[in-house]
């Protein structure tokens, strides 16, 4: 076996920073968008970022049972699917009554 000239190393920190960058983008999208579906996209981005972090820890950090990180990631995906279904149904239901899904025009509860 030949010895490689250069060995690249991926540290846990780098995985966590990629996850944090994705989470920050998702937070920005969720907080700033006017369209309710756009906000939902931001939430999905954040959930994905959290999953990257979970799997990074499962792969690299010390744990008695590293598969737990994968279990939690699968639960996150499950709950995200349920949340997306209900939230998009809500958006469509609001659209039927108000002809808009812009959150700054849905002000029924404002007095």
């Amino acid at each position: 076996m030949h010895s490689p000239v250069l060995t690249l190393v991926l540290h846990l920190e780098e995985v966590l920073i990629v996850g944090a960058a994705l989470f920050a983008i998702g937070l920005y999208v969720a907080l700033s968008k006017r369209n309710a579906i756009g906000i939902l996209m931001g939430i999905e981005l954040m959930l994905n970022a959290v999953n990257i972090t979970f799997l990074g820890f499962a792969r690299m950090s010390v744990s008695e049972d590293p598969i737990q990180g994968h279990v939690f990631a699968v639960f996150v995906i499950t709950v995200a699917a349920a949340e997306a279904a209900v939230a998009l149904a809500l958006a469509v239901a609001i659209y039927k009554h108000r002809e808009t899904v812009n959150i700054d025009q849905i002000d029924l509860l404002r007095w």
């Binding site: 700033s32 006017r34 369209n35 579906i37 998009l88 469509v92 659209y95």
Partner: peptide
Amino acid sequence: AVMLTPAADRHNSET
């Protein structure tokens, strides 16, 4: 969801 809300604003704008 985007296609089912045809009359809504498709512009991906910010508040």
